[in-house]
Design a protein around this nucleic acid. Structure first.
Lengths: 213, 213
DNA sequence: GTCTATAGGAGGATAGAC
DNA sequence: GTCTATCCTCCTATAGAC
């Protein structure tokens, strides 16, 4: 959240807040994931992203060309993170030749762990919900189908299994986006739903979503 | 979509486009459901709602006080429609003392039929995704929990059953919001997922989502 | 690589006539 | 009940200096 700059292993000019573009880019994407995840594409402003990243608004636009393009890159980053996490689980599962049920549970836990960075899951969800936008919509659709395909092809899921897995993922996303997790303990029905949805990962999720402002 | 006015049973001035407030209100809410469902709360403008309703932008604001308030009313209207549809199914099921599995299927079909007016389902989804907004978020949370409670209390679902039912509903919403339904036939994986998710209601959904612009 | 200044355009809301 | 005119804020994007 702060704009402190640590001692770079990269030599050259040691002072001044000049950071290599690649690193700055990642900083901005991380900040943007957070902001877009929270307020949605239309609801977020490039200035909010800039402030979260500790830089000026025009620089955000300068670096990504446009707000739309920035959001597309946020979606791509989130998709890659998700696919990587799932592929890691699949590799482990193949090595240990886990039974199918165990695999589903492992993938579910990996998904829940992704919420460590709430921006990932939420910005994806914000992308899913604006399929109407030509560029963003196409990106979101392609990403969604790619995840389905991963489960079917690399995970060996049946259509039914993959569908149900995704369904629970969408409920997961919705409960986080709704911020029901932030209101844990206020309503018995809601608590029951949260407990049932998140299972053993309830604590993880509550902690991750409660931490951020 | 048109602003034609039919012969009112209500007497008084027969000409001029003056419509009783209650009816106008419903017109605006229907238009707003459509627009908000499509573009989200922040992405939609009161002027788009006005044009969809065939009236002037200031009149929309005048009648509902603010854009935020209009959206809250859209959410309330959608929630009531959904709860009514579910209660109708539950009443029938009780009368026929259907087995649990049949009940779940019936509720699923009722939900799919709601998509006849895509705005209902989509504006709800757009509400769920901005839990961050103080007023709208609280409304959306309360509505979501109310649906869960209906399934548990009036439907006799276990927590697990209700959770899974909601999960599939969220996937349903997501696929419609993503507009994957508008791209049916373009990708084999996507088609498989759509077929698996919507089942016998696939045709209904494709027709309903394909019709609107 | 990063900032300040600012153009230019929407969009929500209000005033007030009819 | 409904419109036109309009204010004022906010926001994306560009220009150009350092």
């Amino acid at each position: 959240m702060s704009s402190v700059n640590q001692n770079m292993s990269d030599p050259g000019q040691a002072s001044a807040d000049r950071i290599p573009a690649a690193e700055r880019r990642e900083q901005i994407l991380a900040a943007a994931s957070h902001v877009f995840g929270q307020r949605g594409y239309a609801g977020a402003t490039t200035d909010q992203v800039a402030q979260a990243a500790g830089i000026s608004q025009p620089y955000v636009v300068r670096m990504f060309g446009s707000k739309e393009n920035l959001f597309v890159e946020v979606l791509n980053r989130a998709r890659v993170r998700l696919l990587d996490a799932f592929r890691a689980v699949l590799a482990d599962a193949a090595a240990a030749s886990l039974p199918r049920e165990e695999l589903v549970a492992s993938l579910g836990r990996a998904y829940a762990d992704l919420i460590e960075d709430r921006g990932i899951v939420l910005s994806l969800m914000q992308g899913f919900v604006i399929g109407h936008e030509p560029v963003i919509g196409a990106t979101a659709r392609a990403g969604f189908v790619e995840i389905y395909r991963l489960l079917r092809d690399e995970g060996g899921f049946t259509a039914e299994e993959a569908m149900s897995f995704l369904a629970h993922g969408m409920l997961f996303n919705t409960l986080v986006a709704l911020r029901l997790t932030d209101h844990y303990g206020e309503d018995a029905s809601a608590d029951e739903l949260l407990a049932c949805t998140f299972g053993t990962k309830l604590e993880t999720v509550l902690k991750a979503t409660g931490a951020a402002e």
